[in-house]
């Protein structure tokens, strides 16, 4: 189980990233955030987000048109 959940379903670029960033701001280093999104662009976007911000992308998966990510706050 992740420490926090973010439902970003139905949101389009760049909202999933912006909402995730907002939640991460309130979290401690080492904690995990689970995000569910429906924007296909979010797959590459979260990879790039993780690379540039030092938050680690632990998981990226797709099932039934939904994308699921787990970020670990750096």
């Amino acid at each position: 189980m992740a420490d926090q959940e973010l439902d970003a379903r139905g949101l389009n670029c760049p909202l999933p990233i912006l909402r995730a960033k907002k939640v991460l701001n309130g979290m401690n280093s080492g904690q995990t955030l689970h995000i569910i999104a429906t924007d296909p662009g979010s797959v590459k976007d979260f990879e790039a987000f993780a690379k540039q911000t030092g938050n680690e992308l632990l998981e990226s998966a797709e099932a039934d048109g939904e994308f699921s990510f787990v970020l670990k706050k750096g």
Partner: peptide
């Protein structure tokens, strides 16, 4: 606004 808000989120 999209680019600047996203850039800010990326630090």
């Amino acid at each position: 606004f999209i680019l600047s808000s996203t850039a800010a989120a990326l630090g």
